[in-house]
Amino acid sequence: MYTHCVYTVCRVLGMSIGHTLLGLLESGPRHGYDLKRAFDEKFGHDRPLHYGQVYSTMSRLLKNGLVEVDGIEAGGGPERKRYAITDAGITDVEQWLATPEKPAEYLQSTLYTKVVLALLTHRDAGDILDNQRSEHLRSMRILTDRKRHGDLADQLVCDHALFHLEADLRWLELTAARLDKLRVEVAR
């Protein structure tokens, strides 16, 4: 069984919860509770979302026109809204997935989320990895150039950054090599 718990969701919670929920809505309308469950299952094994986070995020997405209320079920308890993604919401997810992240330490959780969402929504996850590789190389070229023209202290500082970026890239390459397997796992 594939486990997601090795990836902390702190970055997801901090940076991209809205996009992640939007991405999950692409497969069809869901209630807030279903969204939380899907999020926890795919991305939040060790850090499940709070209901409050789900509903505050959905309110924001609703206000921004990225989701709409698809139906309301009245039951014994409180009313349950069912949310659907709008065309603007799909465009927003599309843009988020296509925009490479600024290279930084501990980027993997965000990239992992993007890759999984791309696979879930039948987008080209390889493109996301290629774009990210390119963004990383852009940073590495700048550092390499700085190193060539700097003193020993510059060289050591740039080397440190270069090795961290290289570690990210190794993760990207390994993930690219495992995309087919990951596609099967996330579809379960």
Partner: peptide
């Protein structure tokens, strides 16, 4: 296949 070597290039082409 080494990023640190590719960082000496002006641009890259990816073959897959």
């Amino acid at each position: 296949h080494e990023a640190r070597v590719a960082a000496y290039s002006d641009r890259e082409i990816v073959v897959r």
